[in-house]
Amino acid sequence: MLIISAIVVFNQVNYLHNKDLGFSKDQIMFFPMRGDEMFTNKDAFKDQLEQIPGVASVSVGYGFPGDAVAGDGIKTLKNGQLVENPATQLMVDYDYIQTLGLEMVAGRPFSEEMGTDRDKAFIINETAVKNLGFETPEKAIGQQLTWNVWNNTNPDSLKVGQVIGVVKDFNYKSLYEKVETTVLQIFPDAAWKVAVKLETAQLESSLDQVETVWNKFSPEYPLEYKFLDENFEVMYQSEDKLKTLLGVFTGLAIFVGCLGLFGLAAFSAERRKREIGIRKVLGASVENIVMLLSKDFVKLVLVALLIASPIAWYFMDGWLQDFAYRINIGWYVFLIAGISAVSIALLTVGFHAIKAAVSNPVKNIRTE
């Protein structure tokens, strides 16, 4: 049971860390803006960051992967009436898609050259296409969306625009949660986080220069940044601990089991010493003797596998239910566990079996 469980947990944890999330999370540092001067001059701040050698792209917004996002609805026209749909709102700028490496599946990204993109354009993900009833990404282009603008002075103000593009689904949350209907839009008033895509070759010098630019706009606050990939690593700390603990306990269980099996094999070989001697006198080979002493232990291991497999599958399948994105428990897991258990048993029993098989049969019979 422990071997099967360990294999499943190891595979799922590796899947969590290596799954393609639909965006590039490598070498992207992000941090919150601080200080009135930085917020007032955020365009100038962004421009200076983009001038740094080794900085590939910069995005300023609200709603980066692994960080806070807004759960707000979006309205669509159905039968001439506006219908509210649950959605996640990502308040982005013109460089968000480029910085994160999102993939467009239809339409186009936001462009500063299009004067209407700020106030009358939306980009949605593939899940939104399905949930909002647009059928295909291509048919979603040009569809009207309406959003209640975050505005303290006029809470009833609406933003009415069209879908200009569809991005491939990307996991901006942990893999415990499914990708939801997601809407990207230009809304500078909500921008307070900065993502900087760095080139690996100039990483250290670029970090120093980012801090220099930061100090120009916000000298009273320290630059507190994280890397996007680190944010996702932190999400699965408990799973990493479970993986480590299960590996340790599985190793201990195998060790303790082998001690008992080693002693049992020694007892069995001693008890059948006379039988082994007679068989050897009658022409039995070393291989025959080893097989004779080992087969009963292998049968017990196979019976244990039959008992443990459904129980382990039940509990591991229940554990995997917590993940929106998970591995499947394939037949190979039980095959690997079975081969491992049988191999461990044979190695443990083999010492006494071979020792008994090569001993002097005359001496054993005379002793008996």
Rank of each mutant, 00 (worst) to 15 (best):
S174V: 02
E239F: 03
V301G: 01
N11F: 09
T181W: 03
F297Y: 05
T88H: 05
S268D: 13
R108F: 04
D119T: 12
N18W: 09
I74E: 06
R274I: 12
L292I: 00
D26G: 07
M29E: 11
L2A: 10
L90F: 02
L2F: 12
R271A: 13
T182G: 10
E112W: 09
E230H: 09
G165K: 01
E177V: 13
K120M: 15
I289H: 00
L145K: 00
L292A: 03
E138I: 03
L245D: 11
A356N: 07
K173H: 15
L175E: 04
N364K: 07
R366G: 08
R118P: 02
A140N: 02
F30S: 12
E112D: 10
V281I: 11
V129N: 05
S285F: 04
M235F: 05
D95F: 06
T182D: 10
I124K: 04
A140I: 06
T99C: 08
H352N: 14
K197Q: 09
L282T: 03
Y172T: 04
N328E: 14
L346G: 05
F315M: 11
I97N: 04
Q321D: 12
I4F: 01
D93F: 01
D72L: 15
I141R: 03
M114R: 12
I311S: 03
A191K: 02
L259E: 02
F351Y: 15
I365L: 07
M29F: 09
L16E: 05
V213K: 01
E84R: 12
A269E: 03
Q185E: 15
N41A: 08
F64N: 05
I354D: 03
A68N: 13
F351A: 07
A357F: 00
A191I: 06
V92T: 12
G63M: 08
F217Y: 14
L302G: 04
Q162F: 05
A265T: 02
N360V: 10
V290K: 00
K280A: 04
I52Q: 04
A56L: 13
P361C: 11
S340D: 08
N18P: 05
D296S: 14
D169P: 01
L292E: 10
V166Q: 05
M33R: 11
H17K: 15
D240R: 13
V183N: 01
H352G: 07
